[in-house]
Design a protein around this nucleic acid. Structure first.
Lengths: 235, 235
DNA sequence: GCCTCTATGTTCGGTAACGCCCAGACGGAG
DNA sequence: CTCCGTCTGGGCGTTACCGAACATAGAGGC
């Protein structure tokens, strides 16, 4: 057997740029390691830099009175953190927490503004991503209101799997409960149900997706809606 | 007594523009009458025009499987409908329904694109508004998840009052139930409670806010959070 | 081996919603 | 005045959660 190959991680947004522009972006920032559970930003904090995850995963969490907060966005290598800057605002509206360790391209705010000012295609692309984020946010709002925990958990697992490009990843039920805005017990029940159906396997924070098709069936339509929204804009 | 005066309605976004630019915008479009319950757009529909409400009220509703949809945004004269166009996307992500009749400035999509291409201040302003909308969407997502009907109803009434610039307006419990994503009976209970507290009065669709302070106290903090988000960006 | 810490599983009573259905009450059209 | 459509109020059983507490079980350090 050959040793485990490690593909060069990329960011799908940056991949949309012409080669020379992509190089420019890579040169404009530096590759940093996102450390699990690091809080990159809190609401109201001034944005010092933006992140284009190559492998890492960033959760966007909105604080809410009477609760521990709620995840309203999940950013992997299909997106970026720092939309407000592209919209002319330099503060974060949400808490940004590293949910999966890995590399990310980090670009200073000032430099990023220079780049989007200089490069129309880049700016256009970020704007379109902002629209996708807007759509997904609206979808999530409805999902959180109407859909049962099990379906939302299935959706979350699929979204995460898409972003880590791996059937297995690490996340405890405690953490899932925080993301979904439910009690841990609720996650235990839902996850147990999904496991009984043979869709996933988990043990002490190690989750493996066994049956992607089945998981899609168990998830609410919001998963598909999210993907469609992305695909409609980026093809 | 003097006859009821009718102030010239304005749009707070357009008011932020220099006088000559504001005139230009008014000339670029035409003033139309938003008709109650009209569906301006459905999800996926191509945007033919944008609206800057002067008096009218537009509800943004996201379709959601297993439910009748959920309101995720409310646009009065403090905002505009058509954010996607400013972000380089020409389809609506939501259903846009006229929730309060009144005048609005309507500008064709092509013309609007010309204007924001020509006028940096305008484009910047719309982008910032998009950010505010993003923040409010995140807040709403959490609010819908965690807060009880009564508090959400109070928030909705305050938001609407702000946008119609009037203590009284017309909205049935049936409609409120749709907006809040609950049963009509749930609205009956919550509205009855607010009325018992002397905060509002209602009868057959005619709602009057009697005690704004009290209503703020009854609402969740999301109302204040929304206003703060707007104020932080537009001062 | 043993201990400890973290993660998971279970149980209890409580509650804020749900869907469904029916009853009353007002107001405008005829 | 009567009729009818719209709007509001209430009851009933059900459900998916909640908060709190307690019980097991695997993984790693020593």
């Amino acid at each position: 057997m050959s040793p485990p190959q490690r593909a060069i991680a990329t960011n799908r947004l940056l991949d949309l740029l012409p080669a020379h522009e992509r190089k420019r972006m890579l040169a404009a920032g530096e590759t940093v390691d996102l450390v699990f559970a690091d809080v990159l930003y809190t609401p109201g904090e001034t944005l010092r830099e933006v992140y284009f995850p190559l492998e890492g995963l960033i959760s966007l969490i909105v604080p809410i009175e009477g609760a521990n907060g709620l995840e309203v966005g999940l950013i992997g290598n299909e997106g970026m953190f720092g939309i407000p800057l592209a919209l002319g605002v330099d503060v974060s509206a949400v808490r940004a927490v590293v949910q999966g360790a890995g590399l990310a391209l980090c670009i200073g705010a000032a430099q990023f503004l220079v780049e989007i000012g200089r490069n129309k295609v880049l700016h256009q692309m970020i704007d379109r991503y902002a629209f996708v984020h807007l759509s997904q946010l609206a979808q999530t709002a409805g999902c959180n209101r109407f859909h049962v925990v099990e379906a939302r958990l299935a959706r979350w697992l699929l979204m995460t799997q898409d972003r880590v490009h791996n059937d297995a990843f690490h996340v405890t039920q405690e953490f899932l409960a925080l993301m979904l805005g439910v009690r841990r017990v609720g996650v235990t029940r839902a996850a147990g149900s999904l496991q009984n159906l043979g869709l996933i396997h988990y043990s002490r924070g190690n989750i493996a997706v066994l049956d992607r098709r089945g998981l899609k069936a168990a998830a609410c339509g919001c998963y598909k809606a999210d993907r469609d929204a992305y695909a409609r804009v980026f093809g």
